[in-house]
Simulated assay, not measured.
Amino acid sequence: MSSDHTRADETDSIDDTDEPLLQVRDLEKYYPITGGLLKKQIGEVKAVDGVSFDVRRGETFAIVGESGCGKTTLGKTIARLHAPTGGSIRFDGRDISALSERDLKPVRREIQVVYQDPTSSLNPRKRIKDIVAEPLVVHDIGTKAERRERVAELLERVDLPEDFLYRYPNELSGGQKQRVAIARALTLNPSLLVLDEPTSALDVSVQAKVIALLEELQAELDLSYLMITHDLSLTKNIADRIGVMYLGKLMEKAPAETLFDAPQNPYTEQLLSAIPIVEESEAAFKPERISIRGETPDPSDPPSGCPFHPRCHRAVDDCSRVEPELVDVGTDHVSRCLLHDEDESEM
């Protein structure tokens, strides 16, 4: 690699005239590990460790990585379902990192979450009309008649007939339940949806329909999406930009097309090489398969140096001793790897 790469400040490289809707800077979420009779803290799990990125208005930013990389914790911390340990979260120009529950209430109207499993996220004892109307009740918005009208409008928007108002979740298919979950997330007219593996619990044929619905809603309502997924192939067509996480750290961040055409981080290379080929026409563009060695390390006892070095096909001696920083490797493209700059490995 050329030594022309510059150290990134972990912000997005493109200067937009409009301030990003969401600005995440050096975000941390640590969980204490206790032991002994007195339950003293003896360590910590760094589920999210110094992560920075922006989500621009109207775009889809995807966070990808293997199970246990911290991406779901990242999403919940940004939505302030978890309090951050450190760093900052700015939403629509306001720092929401340390807001009290009372002050967070209006923010929650603007940031909504769609969870992975709609079966567990929908109350089985409530009818659909009450599930979708619940945010209006919590925020004391509208009369009973106005709430019913709003719920009917939302069901129509997610392509569900009005008679679903009186059904229970167990009467719906997986795809229909997820549409209800999306309708509930839209009830308060949010500007940001955190989509936590929104299609992973669905059949492949249903996944495509839900993704198409999300794209349609984004265009109609000018929504921004933070999509969390382990499926890189899912992000290729829906995401504008992608961040790749490993053991709580952001390893690479780039526009989607750039990431797929010219990945710069060894971990990203391995993830892309593992994407299955669906059609023969894709074979010519498929990178050579790179086998990932070993298992993901215990997050409570991460490796020294680069967190990925024990499994990396391009690791050198310094990778076990020196922790790399994010560096600029192209336009709006950053990566965390010592091989990007030989001088970094001598620090």
Rank of each mutant, 00 (worst) to 15 (best):
H230S: 09
G68V: 01
Y246T: 01
I42K: 06
L38E: 09
E171W: 00
C319A: 13
M1L: 11
I238V: 15
P299N: 04
P263N: 03
E59F: 05
F308G: 12
A133C: 11
E28L: 12
S100L: 12
L202I: 07
Q178R: 00
Q23K: 09
R311V: 09
N237F: 12
T235Q: 10
E282F: 02
R314Y: 12
R57T: 09
S97M: 03
L195Y: 08
S120P: 11
V137R: 10
V180A: 04
P287N: 02
E252T: 00
K39A: 11
G93P: 11
L99N: 00
H313V: 10
K177W: 08
M1S: 14
G294P: 12
P297C: 04
E346M: 15
D9C: 07
L165E: 03
L37V: 14
H230M: 08
R311D: 08
Q218C: 07
E279G: 00
T85A: 05
I63L: 14
Q41C: 06
Y166A: 06
A79F: 04
D95N: 05
S205A: 13
M1V: 12
E288D: 06
R108P: 05
L136F: 09
A315C: 10
I292T: 07
P84A: 14
V329D: 11
E280Y: 00
I182H: 00
G50F: 09
V48R: 00
I111C: 10
E216T: 11
G93V: 05
P161Y: 02
L202D: 09
G75P: 01
P190F: 06
Q218P: 10
